[in-house]
Simulated scan of single mutants.
Amino acid sequence: MVTDEKIKIGMLSMLKPTVNFANKMTADPGQVWGPRTIPDCQLIYIVSGKATVTLGPNVFQLNPGECLFYGNNPHKLVSSKDDPFTFKSIHFSWDEESPVPNHPLNGIKNCSTSELGDLVSPYQILVDEHGEVEFPNHFILPNVETLFTQIIREYRFEEPGYTFVMRGLLTQLITIIIRNEMNGKYSSGERRKIAPALEAIRKQPNINWSSCELAELCGYHPTYFASIFRETIGSSPKHYLIQERIRKAKQLLLEVKTIEEVSVKLGYTSLHYFCRNFKTVTGLTPTEYKIQSLEL
């Protein structure tokens, strides 16, 4: 039985996703896929028309511009009888050494209607300095249709290097979806709890936020707050603040004339401390980073 146990995908920056199949088609009125399971994962973009998908206990009504994702959980997809949908579809594997497609057809299996009620296992991806992000099942994301189109074209025509190009495009698509999820409403329960603290740090990295102040923003005891922060993000609030400051510093070093000014803008009272933090995170001094960026 499929449960809601998390499926750990691994570190985003280390993934080697592979496109197994890509296609665009228009369904027949009332056409049905499933109940079934697939051996890999699938992303669908709705171009026009309407459809309904049953995924675990959830039923989604799909309209133009919406996207759907599922893995090997039992699912059922039904095209509208009155307004059959046209869609773009990508079957893929998350992490494979080879970029060569492995067609999923032989691994597709029918399942019982009762299995559609099984809880869906969420797919979670580890993002540097942000912790785990749950890949969404149903979402709207503007401007991704072009990526679907490019992947389908590469799959169909198999021009030289097409597997390498598909891997790059799919990596870009996955990253955009994850970024959108991260920049949204912090959908996971634990991340929602610390969302006010994350927002405060991102908006005002120049403030030397204490763990107690951040905990108060979220309405929790400092000890409990520090625990869920580390569990969700993978680092302490202090370390996360440093990371955000250095991320902002990289931008400011290309815009502001002096390193001292960047240091002050980010709330550092000691230039030495700023330089030490910067080198610890990036491996370069601010001066080296600034010169290297200008040379490039």
Rank of each mutant, 00 (worst) to 15 (best):
A200E: 01
T18M: 11
T269N: 10
L141W: 12
Q251S: 14
R202P: 04
T223H: 07
L126C: 11
I7E: 13
Y240C: 10
Y45P: 00
C212I: 15
I177D: 05
I38L: 08
E158Q: 14
T37V: 05
P104D: 07
G34T: 02
E154I: 00
A200Y: 11
E181H: 13
L62T: 07
T86S: 10
R230M: 05
E216S: 09
E231G: 06
T232D: 03
E129C: 07
E66Q: 14
E96G: 06
S98D: 09
A226S: 12
E5M: 15
Q42D: 04
I151L: 07
C212N: 13
T175P: 12
S114W: 06
H130P: 04
A249R: 13
T3M: 01
I242K: 15
G168H: 12
K50R: 15
I207N: 09
H130Q: 03
F148V: 11
R191G: 02
R192H: 12
E260G: 15
S98W: 07
F164A: 03
D128M: 13
S93K: 01
M25L: 07
V264N: 10
L296S: 02
L173R: 05
E295I: 12
L198T: 14
E288H: 03
D83S: 07
I207T: 08
S235A: 13
H239D: 08
D4H: 15
S270A: 04
H138R: 09
R247V: 06
L252M: 10
K193I: 14
D40E: 01
P17S: 12
L252D: 01
F85E: 02
E134M: 15
F164N: 08
N58L: 03
D28S: 12
Y70A: 05
E134A: 14
N180T: 13
S293G: 01
N277Q: 05
N72F: 11
M166P: 09
M1F: 15
R153P: 05
W209V: 03
G283S: 03
V59S: 13
L105M: 01
C275S: 12
F278K: 00
I44W: 03
S293P: 00
G30V: 12
V262E: 03
F135W: 12
K88Q: 15
T258C: 10
F135I: 10
H221F: 07
G49T: 08
E190K: 15
S236Y: 08
T285S: 15
H221R: 07
R245E: 00
V47N: 03
Y289Q: 07
S93Y: 10
L141Y: 10
